[in-house]
Amino acid sequence: SEEEEEEWRRAKERGEEIIILGILWKPNDEEAERRIKEALRRV
């Protein structure tokens, strides 16, 4: 969703871990980033 995407962007800017759509994303975690982008597209 729009607000999840916004939340994720803010976490990326701050360089902090975030759990979004049930996926743990850490800074520079390209695999998780790809999965999150896929999940955001499906929503």
Rank of each mutant, 00 (worst) to 15 (best):
I36Y: 02
L24D: 01
D29G: 02
I20F: 12
W25N: 00
A32P: 00
E17K: 05
A39S: 02
K12M: 13
E4R: 12
E6T: 08
E16P: 02
E31L: 06
E4W: 15
P27S: 02
E2A: 13
G15A: 04
W8A: 03
I18Y: 09
E3P: 13
E16I: 11
L21N: 03
K37Y: 12
A39C: 12
K26T: 11
L40S: 00
R14E: 09
P27N: 03
V43E: 13
W8R: 02
K12C: 08
I23K: 01
E5K: 04
E7K: 15
P27V: 03
R35K: 13
P27A: 03
G15E: 05
W25L: 00
W8Q: 02
E33R: 03
L21F: 12
W8D: 04
E3R: 14
R34H: 08
A39K: 06
W25A: 00
W25Y: 04
K12Q: 12
I18G: 01
K12H: 12
E6N: 09
D29A: 03
N28D: 12
G22W: 05
W8N: 02
R14G: 04
P27W: 05
R14K: 14
I18N: 03
E2V: 14
K26G: 05
P27I: 03
L21P: 00
L21T: 01
R42P: 07
A11K: 05
A11P: 03
E38S: 04
E4Q: 14
E4M: 15
R9D: 07
E17C: 10
S1Q: 12
R34L: 11
E7M: 15
D29I: 00
A39Q: 06
E16K: 09
I19Y: 13
R35A: 13
E4G: 11
W25K: 00
R35Q: 13
K26S: 09
D29R: 01
R34D: 07
I19T: 13
K37E: 15
E16F: 11
R41F: 09
N28Q: 10
A32I: 03
K37T: 12
R34Y: 10
E13K: 10
D29T: 01
E13S: 10
I18M: 05
L24W: 04
K37Q: 14
V43L: 15
L21Q: 08
N28P: 04
L21W: 06
E31M: 05
W25T: 00
E38R: 02
E6I: 09
P27H: 03
R41P: 02
R14H: 08
E13H: 06
R14A: 11
E13A: 12
L40W: 05
G15H: 05
G22Y: 07
E38A: 07
K12F: 13
E33H: 04
E5D: 10
A32L: 05
L40G: 00
R9N: 10
R9S: 08
R10L: 10
E30D: 13
E2W: 15
K26N: 05
E7L: 15
I18F: 12
P27E: 06
N28W: 11
E2Q: 14
L24T: 07
W8L: 10
A11I: 14
V43T: 07
R35T: 06
S1E: 14
V43N: 09
I20C: 00
E30G: 06
G22M: 09
L21H: 07
A11Y: 08
R9Q: 12
E31Y: 05
K37D: 12
I36V: 09
V43K: 15
R35M: 10
N28M: 09
D29N: 06
R34A: 14
R41S: 10
L24P: 06
R9P: 02
R35V: 04
E4H: 15
K12Y: 12
E31A: 07
A32E: 03
R42M: 12
I36K: 02
E2C: 08
K37W: 14
L40I: 10
I20L: 05
E16N: 07
E5R: 06
I18C: 11
L24M: 07
R41Q: 13
E6P: 03
K37R: 13
E31N: 06
E4S: 13
E33F: 06
R34F: 10
E33Q: 03
L21Y: 08
E2D: 13
I19N: 05
W8P: 03
V43D: 09
D29E: 02
E6S: 08
P27M: 02
E30F: 11
E33W: 09
K26E: 05
E30Y: 11
E6H: 06
E4N: 11
S1Y: 15
A32W: 02
E38V: 04
G22P: 00
N28T: 04
N28F: 13
I18V: 11
I19E: 06
E4L: 15
W8C: 08
K37M: 13
E17A: 12
R41C: 15
R14N: 11
I19P: 01
I20V: 10
G22F: 14
R9M: 12
E3Y: 13
K26L: 07
E5V: 10
K12L: 06
A11H: 08
I36E: 00
E31V: 08
R41I: 09
E33P: 00
K26Y: 06
E5I: 12
E31I: 07
G15T: 03
I19K: 06
E17H: 11
S1V: 15
K37N: 13
I18D: 01
V43S: 11
I20Q: 01
K26R: 14
R10Y: 08
A11M: 06
L21R: 11
R10G: 07
E16D: 10
E5T: 10
K37L: 15
A32S: 09
K37I: 15
A39I: 08
I20N: 01
L40R: 01
E3N: 14
I19L: 12
E7I: 15
E31F: 04
I20K: 01
E16L: 11
E16Y: 10
R41A: 13
G15Y: 04
G22S: 05
R41K: 14
R14C: 07
R10D: 08
K12I: 10
G15V: 04
E13M: 08
V43Y: 14
R14D: 05
E3A: 14
E4K: 11
A39T: 03
L21G: 02
L40D: 01
G15F: 07
E38D: 09
K26P: 05
R9W: 10
I36W: 03
E5A: 10
E13Q: 11
S1T: 14
E4Y: 15
R14S: 11
E3H: 13
G15M: 07
R35S: 06
D29P: 03
E5P: 12
E30W: 10
E13G: 04
L24N: 04
E38I: 05
E7T: 10
W25V: 01
E31K: 03
A39P: 00
D29W: 06
E6K: 10
E5H: 11
R9A: 09
I18T: 08
R42W: 11
A39N: 01
R35Y: 04
E6V: 08
E6M: 11
E13N: 07
G15W: 06
I36L: 06
L21C: 11
E5M: 13
I19R: 08
E31G: 05
E3S: 14
I19F: 10
E13L: 10
E17P: 15
E13T: 07
E38H: 03
E30M: 13
E38G: 02
L21K: 06
R35W: 07
E30H: 12
V43H: 15
I23S: 00
V43W: 13
E38P: 00
I19Q: 07
E33G: 04
E30S: 09
I19A: 06
I36F: 05
A32V: 05
E7R: 15
W25C: 03
I23G: 01
I19V: 11
G22K: 01
A32Q: 02
N28A: 07
E3W: 14
E7C: 14
I19S: 06
R9H: 11
E5Q: 08
P27G: 03
R35L: 13
I19M: 10
R42F: 10
E13W: 06
K37P: 00
A32F: 00
E17Y: 09
E17L: 09
I36H: 02
I20Y: 05
K12S: 05
R9G: 04
E31T: 07
E2N: 14
S1N: 13
E3I: 13
E30K: 12
R34N: 12
E30T: 09
G22A: 04
G15L: 06
E2L: 15
E33I: 05
A39E: 08
E33A: 05
G22T: 05
V43Q: 14
E5L: 14
P27K: 03
R41W: 09
G15K: 06
D29Q: 04
N28K: 05
A32D: 01
E16A: 05
I36G: 01
N28L: 09
I20P: 00
A39H: 04
K26Q: 07
L24E: 03
G22N: 04
E6F: 09
R42I: 12
I23M: 02
D29Y: 03
R42N: 12
L21V: 04
R10C: 12
S1I: 14
L40H: 03
A32N: 02
E16R: 04
E6A: 10
